[in-house]
Nucleic acid binder design. Sequence first.
DNA 1: CTGTTAGCGCGTTCAA
DNA 2: TTGAACGCGCTAACAG
Lengths: 330, 330
Amino acid sequence: MPKISDVASRAGVSPATASRVLNGKSTVAPELAERVQAAAAEMQYRPNGLARSLRRRETTVIALIIGDVENPFFTSLARGVEDAAHADGYSVILCNSDEDPVKERRYVDVALQERAAGVVLSSAGSTESIGMLRDQRIPFVAVDRPVEGAATDTVVVDTRSAAAAATLHLLEQGYQRIGCIAGPAGIATADDRLAGYRDALRAANRRIPARLVRHAEFKAAGAKAAARQLLDRRERPDALLVANCVMARGVLEAMAELGLRSGRDVGLAAFDDDPWTTLITPPMTVIAQPAHDLGLIATRLLLSRIADPARAATTSTLHATLIPRGSTER
Amino acid sequence: MPKISDVASRAGVSPATASRVLNGKSTVAPELAERVQAAAAEMQYRPNGLARSLRRRETTVIALIIGDVENPFFTSLARGVEDAAHADGYSVILCNSDEDPVKERRYVDVALQERAAGVVLSSAGSTESIGMLRDQRIPFVAVDRPVEGAATDTVVVDTRSAAAAATLHLLEQGYQRIGCIAGPAGIATADDRLAGYRDALRAANRRIPARLVRHAEFKAAGAKAAARQLLDRRERPDALLVANCVMARGVLEAMAELGLRSGRDVGLAAFDDDPWTTLITPPMTVIAQPAHDLGLIATRLLLSRIADPARAATTSTLHATLIPRGSTER
DNA sequence: CTGTTAGCGCGTTCAA
DNA sequence: TTGAACGCGCTAACAG
């Protein structure tokens, strides 16, 4: 691969001049500029990004750390990040933490080593990784899940009140024993959704039935097991609020095996508006989250912080929308 | 951020010695080594990946270029790539071509600029980007879709024969007018699946009904429109082979709007074993692809080529599996 | 407006 | 075994 000095000598100028032409900095005699451009084109010159970044002391990659690329919520978010990043000439390194604080820490390490310009983080709760980010003063934004401690750019969804609204909806539909299959304790969105569920029951002067609440990973398998425990007994809940659509899949599997039909036998509402939810029978009531916008806004926030590290921290809260469907009609 | 010379002076040695210790190269007096390790730990030293890569003339990132992160087939594949890459200390840059040859070319450009160690490419058909990769002699492997020209490491699925098997299954179930909603013409997997469909009809001495074939993007919306065209007339097909599950969603939407039930009214089989396909009524017949393995094997192949660029090119073909379910029972 | 010089942070010579 | 010197490819500062 040719380097800039090769281009320069072919064009009969100094490397510095070639650099100036190729970067559009300062002004160069039109004739020389043309010779440089021609030489670069002929040789298929491609600047060495590493050398450039080393010298400029800045890169154009941002790291995105999420819990699970196979969860449509996160891929949609990732897409938003990508769109915003590429629009500004940045590349994205995608890292899968598997909701494991140790892996998360490792990826933050990689991001720091590679001198990423910034990080978009949906944290699994590793206070250590957040400490590293803060120590190194590398721009980062918390997305989907807030982080503890000092003020930080944050983009989240009003997931707690959305969970309350969904629970209220179940109450209004006449369900009496409403259970909840929550995400892993300690993860903000999981805790918030559970809290919202409790808020609504409390507001309606209902008992908050600890026996109707289960925690599980944000995966289908765990939710399936939890649902089976909850549903396979006489005193079963007559409705369930589920922390996301991946988990709802597991719940639906359990219900099918137990011969239970959603809506009629068990009211069902879950977070995330997976496109498949309208194709099942009955269609599933969901709490739609603006995942793509979440990624988009988080990334714009990050880019603006990269541009101005001194700017005060911002939190923006997007709204989730309850979409009632057949799974909550008796 | 501290640099290696900072660590060295704190440990009272030269930068060269510090480098030797930190990289485990050559042998250093145990006492000095310990001092260096201690200093590095205290200062939270993190080698500058850019400088290191520049000096070593090699990076540890690989680029993954796919058509659509929001397609579960690709995310599963991406997961396989990630798993294999991280196991070997490589990072992955994920690039979304949107099945657009121009975007694909741009990402190849980025990969070259950043001096990626290699590329895993599911090509949208940009001959230009493949030419660039070949010209620069950068290791790359074609995944899911073969590329034209010189021998290239390739990992694919026997999608053509799988499509034929699925079509044969539809014939055996007694469907008479079998249509096909294919992917975009020019994309290998789309063309192959359509070819397999034709193979099976030809082998059964059936007419190959051009009027029952439609092309669409690998998206729900396009497939929905195509399905509506096909199904909303008297002489409609009584079964459909669909190029993937994302498209099948569109087909199911169209059928719901037309009041058609899969299985009874229209037999339905689609590529990819999306977990939702067992939750709809009736469950959908699918052709399951080993997407995760595809990514895994492709990446291992890539890493082995990075290690030995002279090795002869390999093609491995994985098998897809027909899973008959209710959507192909009358 | 252009060229020369210097150095980003590292790993690897080559001598001692 | 250790350290000094050099250069990976680039761009910013300084001179001319």
